[in-house]
Design a protein around this nucleic acid. Structure first.
Lengths: 133, 133
DNA sequence: CTCAGTGCAAACTATTTGCAGATTT
DNA sequence: AAATCTGCAAATAGTTTGCACTGAG
């Protein structure tokens, strides 16, 4: 129910917002940079400005609809927040991104934070390398 | 032996290089952004251009003398590479950075990479939150 | 009809580059 | 002296903002 998500975020249901959310929901690719989203929309004959893409993405992040990642390199990537936390493996040659989740690591992070008197709010774990073959 | 490190990297031993390395070696702070280094040098009456700071930092990273981190936020930070790998906890209020190392997590990362047929080359783990009290 | 949202162009921030003069070896 | 290095200013890349017009409710 994408349109409801937009409404519940206190935002009006506009073309760019619906289309950006739809793209993130229906694409087989999970991670997009702002530029990629922009070009994808243009390719589908949806006229938007790059500024709107950035604005909408920022709003969606605030609303908790999507997540923003700061991998190595110059630009950020965005993905739909499907509620299940996960970390990433990034192929440094191809740019391919694969998600994983590991309870042992999650647990250890909490223990370490505890040890240091650190109130853990979020974390980011990214493995860089190459997928074999 | 900082000057030797510079030489061994195939770089000439110049004022800016020596001073940047010295700052990173002797400061109680471990992590600096390029701007911070720049201002720190100016404060110590060492005239450099910001472009030189960026150039030298890039060269030092290539030479393996320092490490570059991409924490959340706009700018990168640099720290001396003391050879011992570690991850980071970042206080989102104060900006304070504390290092930690956990063998269990390191081990799990290797196992996960193995499972996925992923040749692990590096990784980045950062905990975000606040130090209590 | 009203106010939020949009596209455009200009502004901004972090970083990089071209170049002529300065430094290291 | 030769080659690298530097500071400056201009360029770049990603992202943000001001503004007048457009569109959702």
């Amino acid at each position: 129910m994408d349109k409801n998500d937009i409404k519940q975020a206190g935002l009006k249901v506009t073309r760019p917002r619906v289309e950006i959310l739809k793209l993130l929901e229906t694409s087989d690719k999970q991670h997009f940079s702002a530029e990629e989203i922009y070009h994808e929309l243009l390719k589908n004959n949806i006229k938007v400005g790059i500024a709107t893409v950035y604005r909408v993405l920022t709003q969606f992040v605030s609303a908790g609809l999507i997540i923003k990642h700061n991998f190595e390199g110059d630009q950020c990537v965005f993905e739909l927040d499907r509620g299940e936390h996960h970390d990433h493996m990034v192929d440094m040659k191809t740019g391919k991104i694969v998600e994983f989740h590991d309870e042992i690591i999650e647990q250890r992070q909490k223990e370490i934070a505890e040890q240091y008197g650190f109130e853990l709010m979020e974390h980011s774990l990214t493995l860089y390398g190459e997928f074999k073959q």
